[in-house]
Design a binder for these strands. Structure first.
Length: 977
RNA sequence: GCCCGGGUGGUGGAAUUGGUAGACACGCAGGACUUAAAAUCCUGUGAUCGCAAGGUUGUACGGGUUCAAGUCCCGUCCUGGGUACCA
């Protein structure tokens, strides 16, 4: 009756979606006598573009594992929710005036509908949304716990309630306190503490709180009156509008994640994560052991403190380098160097950290005119500033040893500074990347001479300590995490200000909900959007006006799934004790150092405070690769002055422009848009524009921007008229086409993402082939962990496989035709071989190979014309994790009333797999080196050949080696005598 | 720049982790069925020489270790992700 046709697929999938919902098969309780298994996906940000084909990749994998584990007898929690705060909704709100909550709700509805179409086994009763006040109430609550906490190092590192700190300050001051706190924390007595007024007390406590306020660097765009992410800054100007951006200090909330650095590092050894992710976290935390020491400034008061891991090389110091932002720069600079230093500082200030680091090959710096004294030998050392030294790391100052550091070496060469060898061996390799200053004995180093570098470090350290000029210090590259954003669409802080003192709102006033505002952009004076809220105050006091960052809500959400409705706690003790931690977490590797680190941090803090009982939140992690999309780019011309209209040039012109080979046509059309430009003059590229002092506005370059891929057609070029209609930003822009009138876009393969306008929607595939085909196809595409561009060319093969599987159960007329006959040994061998491989593959997250195994099995059974229940039933159960709809239907056709979800995963047996064979051991020099397997039905001459070969080997052991004996998988395949 | 991945036929990818490279699938070519098309089934398919048997070559590039290298080591190139306010 029924063929596996488009209509039939639709009927089957709709039917079972409804059935599963009414039967409530995915509902999960917080108790069971089965072992628990918690499978978590990284929840999506609900973007306006809807779910794209990259999202389901990980979700399908986790759904397969969930269903598999359930069939294997586990009590499985597999929830889904939405990371709903974020920039895109806010930007859309700024443009349209639409409240981000409205957009977000709409997007979430779309996502849920799309997700449901794919047949996931989520328990939707446990859905969480980070932007829902009933959720962010608890995000705010956790913030309050962290505000009310400090981190003591004694007796063991632990988060403690702040009241214990206050009690100790009252009693003894902070002389006995060993805590993680601000570097500039002074030592005070109990009397000092008591003499502080309320404000001074709070300022002092801020140096200890886990959540605290600090002065941090941000990208400030005066024209837009807002803070920009590094992402939003392109080539030194804002991505939107092309306005200049500068670095600026701003008071912001921060999280003292550095307190947990050591634990975050050690914890990595206890969890089953991909080694590269662990490695990235280790590098991010960046522990380095060394010391800080002071250099006295000559002819002036004061010292400069540097951090070094190589104190042994102290005699090789020939200059010192400060970060341009270092606070002493203006103080120590001599009059004659002032102009040079100031101009250098200005340039450096306006370059982002990433830019500065990515251009280390371009050496730059300025001499301050000041000198310091080497405390070991009294040598006079010039002090320079250079942007390869970062203000945020260590002390913002380094002692430069050009003979043992590549960057110092390059700097010394460039500015002709002296170089003193302090380690034996050639330094000619120093410019090479593999240069290793960790060998040889010390030379030219006075008392350190002849020591190994490791011994020298210890000797030098003791000297530093005995002279009282410095201390041993463990430094972490990781900085405290900034926890505030100058945006509207985020969690408001449960904080208000009374006489300038930050205070927490009363716990019963949670949640502090987002107020209504007349617009979602910053105020005219550059204050955050929340400053626009009228009548929004706490008992007459001003609320904190920044909001929490995107990672706030995602740093604890896995706990909320355990008990999502709870109004009294973020999750009940029983729920937390039952589910404990996540057994399997699947998500993209792009979160390696962001979300995954913050989540571990909050988990540890919550554990210390006694709210949860797991030190690590995610026991096992799998990184799914990205499904990539092909992005299209447009190219905006750029000069150093702001133009009235944006001008975009076609890819071909951009290519010629960057090579400085503009054609007559190019010059003519660009000149029409820029009448003042002298285009026959020197053309320069993005690379050297900042360097060139002759840059006077006549020189132009360009920046590239993503554009919606659906606006581009390979033959027609870009439909920029539609683009202008769709995006008001582009309404007045000019598009310069090639001579044939087409605007050609450049393209690149990159991560599929709304912000890159390159998303492909899965709905079309579900409509044409069904959800099961989409699921199996996404798994068949390749290994889960690997990134791959999206293409649908192979999808027919997967569809055909499902149809062939369906046909195994049906006769030519489409009637169900399954017999209860005994299967043959041959059929059982196919079945058990497949079951064994599939199980191995699923346990190893190798879903692409399991799909292949299913296909092979299906082909073999087809050619055997096997329609026996004893074979087909177990296979149906095994396949149900991958393709739930079709298997559920077949399960019913086989006469089962209950859902296939409640059946048991089939066991395979070795009995049907073993070959009849015997083993023949081959020993060489008395050791068994290989075993030969002879199938009983092996041709006689083959056996003879192999036995002969083995005899050769026997002889070899007696001292007559053959030229060559090649053993493959325990078999001798070739012998050369 | 720095940190972490990846590079195998026309295409997506297999390869028991050092043991006969290219499983499975797409595509393509040829054939069967059909009045015809679709669907389905069968055969072939890395390159190269050959009618064939078979030979040679072949896992980005250049070296190395090994009886044996897609796999391990060194170097180079290309490419993806992250780089602290995209999430």
């Amino acid at each position: 009756m029924a063929d596996y046709s488009k209509d039939e697929i639709k009927r089957i999938e709709d039917k079972w979606r409804k059935e599963w919902k009414t039967r409530g098969v995915y509902k999960v309780e917080n108790h069971s006598d089965k072992p628990k298994y918690y499978v978590l996906d990284m929840f999506p940000y609900p973007s306006g573009a809807g779910l794209h084909v990259g999202h389901p990749l990980g979700y399908i994998a986790s759904d397969i594992v969930s269903r598999y584990k359930r069939l294997k007898g586990f009590h499985v929690l597999h929830p889904m929710g939405f990371d709903a705060f974020g920039l895109p909704a806010e930007q859309y709100a700024i443009q349209t005036g639409q409240h981000p909550a409205v957009t977000t709700e709409k997007n979430i509805a779309t996502y849920i509908e799309q997700l449901n179409k794919i047949g996931f086994s989520f328990d939707w009763d446990r859905k969480v949304e980070t932007s829902d006040p009933s959720y962010y109430k608890w995000t705010q609550w956790i913030f309050m716990q962290l505000f009310n906490s400090w981190y003591t190092k004694k007796p063991v590192g632990k988060t403690e309630p702040i009241i214990t700190l206050i009690a100790e300050l009252e009693k003894n001051g902070n002389k006995n306190i060993d805590a993680v706190c601000d570097d500039d924390t002074p030592t005070i007595t109990a009397a000092d503490w008591k003499s502080f007024n309320e404000k001074a007390k709070e300022e002092f406590l801020q140096k200890y709180r886990i959540a605290y306020r600090s002065d941090t660097m941000v990208n400030w765009c005066p024209a837009l009156g807002t803070v920009l992410s590094n992402d939003e800054v392109k080539d030194g100007v804002s991505e939107r509008g092309g306005y200049p951006v500068e670095r600026k200090k701003m008071w912001q909330w921060s999280m003292r994640i550095t307190a947990y650095a050591e634990r975050l590092l050690k914890g990595l050894d206890t969890i089953d994560w991909p080694e590269p992710v662990k490695e990235m976290q280790r590098n991010w935390i960046g522990k380095s052991v060394g010391c800080e020491l002071d250099f006295k400034v000559e002819k002036q008061e004061g010292t400069i403190r540097v951090f070094t891991t190589r104190i042994d090389t102290i005699y090789g110091v020939t200059f010192m380098v400060l970060a341009p932002e270092h606070e002493l720069v203006s103080k120590i600079t001599t009059a004659e160097q002032k102009a040079e230093v100031e101009s250098y500082v200005t340039i450096a200030k306006n370059r982002s950290e990433r830019e500065r680091m990515s251009e280390v090959k371009r050496i730059s710096g300025a001499f301050t005119g000041a000198y310091v004294t080497n405390p070991f030998n009294g040598a006079k050392i010039p002090v320079w500033i250079a942007d390869y030294v970062l203000a945020g790391y260590g002390t913002g100052a380094v002692m430069a040893v050009p003979s043992s550091d590549t960057r110092d070496y390059a700097f010394a060469k460039h500015f002709s500074l002296p170089i003193i060898d302090v380690l034996e061996g050639p330094t000619s390799d120093i410019t090479k990347d593999n240069f290793d200053p960790k060998s040889g004995k010390m030379i030219n180093s006075d008392s350190l001479n002849g020591l190994d570098w490791k011994e020298a470090i210890e000797v030098a350290l003791q000297k530093v300590e005995s002279l009282g000029i410095g201390i041993r210090k463990v430094n972490f590259r990781m900085r405290d995490a900034i926890f505030g954003r100058q945006r509207y669409w985020g969690e408001p802080f449960p904080v208000y200000y009374e006489n300038g003192i930050p205070k927490l709102v009363d716990i019963k006033d949670l949640p502090v909900t987002l107020p209504e505002v007349d617009a979602y952009k910053p105020t005219e004076s550059g204050e955050p959007p929340l400053a626009r809220a009228k009548g929004w105050d706490y008992k007459g006091n001003q609320f904190e006006q920044t909001t929490m960052p995107g990672w706030a809500g995602s740093s604890w959400y896995w706990f909320r799934y355990m008990d999502p409705e709870n109004e009294k706690e973020f999750a009940s003790k029983e729920a937390v004790n039952y589910w404990k931690d996540v057994d399997l977490y699947i998500g993209g590797s792009e979160h390696a150092t962001g979300h995954l680190l913050y989540s571990r941090f909050w988990c540890k803090a919550l554990k210390d405070l006694g709210y949860v009982n797991s030190e690590e939140p995610f026991k096992k992690l799998i990184n799914q690769g990205h499904i990539q999309g092909v992005s299209k780019f447009i190219y905006r011309l750029r000069t150093n002055s702001k133009l009235k209209k944006d001008v975009f040039i076609s890819f071909n012109i951009a290519k010629r422009l960057s090579k400085g080979e503009l054609s007559l046509y190019d010059k003519k059309v660009i000149k029409e848009q820029y009448p003042d430009l002298e285009l026959d003059g020197k053309l320069i590229t993005n690379q050297n524009v900042l360097d060139d002092s002759s840059f006077d506005g006549t020189l132009i370059t360009y920046s590239q921007f993503n554009v919606d891929i659906d606006l581009y057609d390979e033959t027609q070029g870009l439909n920029f008229e539609l683009l202008k209609k769709r995006k008001p930003d582009f309404a007045n822009s000019i598009f310069i086409t090639d001579e044939d009138g087409k605007y050609i876009c450049g393209s690149e393969v990159e991560k599929m993402s709304k912000s890159k306008y390159n998303v492909v929607n899965p709905d079309e595939i579900v409509d044409n082939y069904g959800a099961d085909t989409l699921r199996v196809y996404e798994m068949f595409l390749g290994p889960l962990e690997m990134s791959k561009p999206w293409n649908t060319s192979g999808i027919d093969g997967v569809f055909k496989f499902l149809r062939r599987f369906w046909n195994l159960f049906h006769d030519q007329q489409g009637n169900v035709a399954v017999t209860d006959a005994e299967p043959s040994r041959e059929e059982l061998k196919v079945l058990h071989k497949t079951l064994k491989k599939i199980e191995y593959d699923i346990e190893h997250f190798s879903f692409n190979t399991s799909v292949s195994e299913f296909m092979i099995c299906c082909n073999e059974l087809s050619s055997m014309k096997c329609n026996k229940r004893a074979v087909l039933e177990p296979l149906t159960i095994a396949l149900s994790s991958f393709a739930p709809h079709i298997t559920e239907e077949l399960w019913q056709l086989l006469g089962h009333k209950d859902s296939i979800l409640n059946s048991t995963y089939p066991k395979w047996s070795e009995e049907y797999l073993t070959e009849s064979s015997f083993e023949y051991p081959i020993s060489i020099n008395g050791k068994v080196r290989a075993k030969m397997n002879f199938a009983l039905d092996m041709p006689k001459e083959d056996v003879e050949k192999l036995v002969l070969a083995s005899e050769v080997v026997q002889k070899w052991s007696e001292g007559k080696p053959p030229k060559k004996v090649i053993v493959v998988q325990g078999r001798i395949v070739n012998v050369v005598l």
